[in-house]
Computed example of a mutant assay.
Amino acid sequence: MLAGIADEAGHGLRTQISAIRALGWGGIELRCVDRFPVAELDEHRFARVVEELAAAELHVVCLASRIGSWARPISGPFDLDLTELDVLARRCAALGTRYVRVMSYPNDGLDEAQWRARCVDRLRVLATRAEDSGVTLLHENCSGWAGTSAKRMLELLDAVDSPALRLLFDTGNGIPHGYDGLAVLKEIVEHVAHVHVKDAVGSPAEHSYTLPGAGQARVTDCVRLLRDNGYTGAWSLEPHLGLRPHEPGELAADAPQRFLAAGRAMTELLR
Rank of each mutant, 00 (worst) to 15 (best):
L126Y: 07
L137Y: 07
A255W: 05
A255D: 01
G10M: 07
V100L: 11
M103W: 11
D34I: 04
S65W: 02
S75M: 05
Y99F: 13
G202Q: 05
S133R: 12
L156F: 14
L80P: 11
W235P: 03
V102Y: 14
L137V: 09
R45T: 06
G4K: 11
I28W: 15
T15S: 09
L123S: 02
L23W: 07
A150F: 03
I5M: 14
Q216T: 00
E40D: 14
H139Q: 12
R35A: 10
Y209F: 15
L80R: 15
R152G: 02
V102N: 13
V100F: 12
S203N: 01
I17W: 08
A234T: 11
T83N: 08
R244C: 01
R116L: 00
G249R: 11
L241M: 00
V102R: 11
H139N: 05
L41W: 03
R224V: 09
G76V: 12
V38E: 07
G202L: 06
Q257L: 09
L80F: 15
M103E: 07
R224F: 08
D132K: 15
P212D: 06
C62R: 05
I67A: 06
E52I: 00
D111T: 01
E57P: 07
A94Y: 11
R122E: 11
E43K: 04
L157K: 11
S18Q: 15
V61S: 15
T148M: 01
N107R: 09
A89N: 00
V135I: 14
A265P: 00
D81H: 05
L123F: 12
H139T: 05
R166M: 15
Y105L: 13
Q114K: 08
L30E: 08
R72L: 15
A214R: 01
S104P: 09
L82C: 00
L156S: 14
D79P: 11
V50F: 09
T136L: 13
D199E: 08
T83Y: 08
A205V: 01
I17G: 07
C92Q: 01
P245S: 00
D180Q: 02
G144P: 04
G10N: 10
D161Y: 02
S104Q: 05
G4Q: 07
R66K: 08
R98P: 06
R271D: 10
L110I: 02
A164H: 14
L226E: 10
